[in-house]
Design a protein around this nucleic acid. Structure first.
Lengths: 192, 192
DNA sequence: TGTACATCAGTGAACGCGCGTTCACTGATGTAC
DNA sequence: TGTACATCAGTGAACGCGCGTTCACTGATGTAC
């Protein structure tokens, strides 16, 4: 073979990574195959040797975006801080608002996913269940078993809603205030 | 004149109304000028006699969508229900999830607005301030003055986040559960 | 060791299509005389 | 009252462009003999 073993798989992975950043930054509809391939250092014609359609790439890039943010190493817990509070503050920090291309895929893509095909929505659903489950595990012991999942959904709802609102408003001071209000709301919901 | 007085203004209004539904249903990027004009019973060439660009229509249609949902008549208060609880339950009901074309413009368009030009984002900001202000007024008397706006932002954050998540997931039972979790979270945040 | 051939990731021209935008034109009506 | 002209909302062809997708081809390398 003209290319070392694993070459094609590495190229495919590179396309997915580029796409996962571009889709989160500019939206799925605004990003074309040719642009993604060019960013990956390739020409557009080769795309269909790797994926069956743009929709397939959307689904794979979305899942990759979720997985890469899930796998991100966490900073150490500060004294008196618990894991859930760290998660909430990390999510609703200005740096996350300002770098959607490396941020939460749910916040960047939720509205578009609602208009995509069932396979993409099912993949989204699975990733969302994962996030909600991890939040539920981090709730304080005092929260009743039956209420944990519902509480976790509410917490993630504010996180996602506040992050999106902070990205949309034109007023920087209001944007910062939205992040802070989201933190306070999420922490209140997390109380036992 | 060949047309009665007010004819052009009425046409313009019709274009805005069609666009405000189509943008909320399918997203701004996926809706073309020609389609909007055809839905309004016109051909696409006349568009630029009414608007300077698609972006101008986006901004006007978004504002119209906000205003029409704000102006919607409210059902009567049930015994023991307050105005804020009615607002929250009305927002997070299945019918709202299932009819984005007549629903909350913020939930439908927030992600796209973040990528649009400053004039559109400023219009969005103003409308959002209006919604937040109205929620703040409906908070119980016990909520301290200084905390009212922040609390209102948190409440609208869960409402918007939960509605969007309920629209994106593929599992109907989970979608219903998200709406219910959003209601519980918003009500908890509204407690004095 | 040297030559012929097979492999296949990637190339780039081409497909039909819809986009946002421009513009010369139409044609029904109101006004001027 | 009758005719000529002005008005202007709306029409539809055309512009350049980028989209997703297809496909015949390239060319560097590995294998066969």
């Amino acid at each position: 073979m003209r290319f070392e073993k694993g070459h094609k798989a590495a190229t495919r992975q590179r396309i997915i990574e580029v796409a996962s950043e571009r889709f989160r930054k500019d939206g799925v509809a605004a990003v074309g195959i040719a642009g993604v391939m060019a960013d990956a250092g390739l020409t557009h014609g080769g795309f269909y040797a790797h994926f069956g359609s743009k929709e397939d790439l959307v689904r794979e890039a979305m899942v990759a975006a979720f997985e890469s943010t899930n796998a991100r190493p966490q900073s150490a817990l500060k004294p008196g801080e618990n894991a859930l509070e760290r998660r909430i503050r990390g999510y609703l920090r200005p740096a996350h608002r300002d770098t959607p291309e490396r941020g939460c895929a749910a916040a960047a893509l939720v509205a578009e996913v609602a208009r995509h095909d069932p396979a993409t929505r099912e993949a989204f659903t699975g990733e969302l269940e994962g996030i909600v489950g991890r939040i539920a595990e981090q709730l304080p012991d005092g929260v009743a078993e039956a209420a944990r999942k519902s509480t976790a959904i509410g917490i993630f709802g504010v996180m996602l809603g506040a992050l999106q609102l902070s990205r949309a408003v034109a007023d920087p001071a209001l944007s910062d205030a939205i992040l802070e209000s989201g933190i306070q709301a999420a922490l209140k919901l997390a109380e036992a």
